[in-house]
Design a protein around this nucleic acid. Sequence first.
DNA 1: CGTTATAAGTTGCCCAGGCAAGTAAAAAGC
DNA 2: GCTTTTTACTTGCCTGGGCAACTTATAACG
Lengths: 160, 160
Amino acid sequence: MDTPSPWLDADQQELWQDLLTVVIALPAALDRQLQRDAGISNFEYGVLARLSMADHVTMRFSELARDCNSTLPRLSKLMDRFEAREWIVRRVDPSDGRYTLATLTDSGQQKLVDSAPGHVAQVRRLVFDSLTATQRRHFGTALSNVAETVRREAAGGPTG
Amino acid sequence: MDTPSPWLDADQQELWQDLLTVVIALPAALDRQLQRDAGISNFEYGVLARLSMADHVTMRFSELARDCNSTLPRLSKLMDRFEAREWIVRRVDPSDGRYTLATLTDSGQQKLVDSAPGHVAQVRRLVFDSLTATQRRHFGTALSNVAETVRREAAGGPTG
DNA sequence: CGTTATAAGTTGCCCAGGCAAGTAAAAAGC
DNA sequence: GCTTTTTACTTGCCTGGGCAACTTATAACG
């Protein structure tokens, strides 16, 4: 392979700065709105949302962690809090004692329903309203590539 | 105004999931590489990089915080650590005692120079290599809009 | 000028999350 | 079938970062 120039050019720098702004400030903005209006974080919202879409509103911890871009310790501790608020119940998987199942309770579902509209509105406002229909398509395509690369990295990646 | 449909459609959902993956997993991947190869975080790298580009490698804390998407308390504590490692020196702005100036030391610059190549390579690998030239342009345009919106939100936003 | 208001940093308290070590259950090896 | 390994989750320890309260320095007001 030839020697790749070690630095980013001006265009790349600008894109990179904007991307940094988005990856840092966007989650912060989502957290602010959810914290203010619903007392939960963006991550917590995501877990409730994912569970609500599962069969019998029930999932294994490991699967839930993967889908929510989380680690197991992080999810385990979150579930402690959710259990205390009675938003989920924990039980050992009867078919394999290593797995733990989380099931969303009625009040957990209610919490999601209550906080969803404000959150969705915030997502619209911060992301979709900034883009034309064409831009949205292009953005989606490019983003899908980057997301795929990053997902692979998060798994075994180039190290494994 | 008419009633906006409260949910995202399928395309929007997909874009949104990819965006969530990127904003969560991309910083994590950057942190892993930098932590492993240089013992610093992505945020710390960004602060070193920004300072290195300033006149006399010196900036006011408030300005540095803005440019690095940081809060003052966060930056203040980071500077405690950097000062302990002698990567920066702190001094009161002689022209206005409220401001504090941070100046990058030689070893601070050295740290940046040492860690830059690996970091830049990681950025290339995770972002730019996933995109064609055309996608990169489109992506940059859309991203710039979103970044602008999010920056405004981080400042006074719609509340202020 | 003395008083009040505003701006820039700092500190303390608290909590979330990372990592490494520990536990428990199932699968593999022999 | 007993030991060893692997998988899934949990726990403890430690650090980073958010927020609110405090300190200090200038600006604005009268």
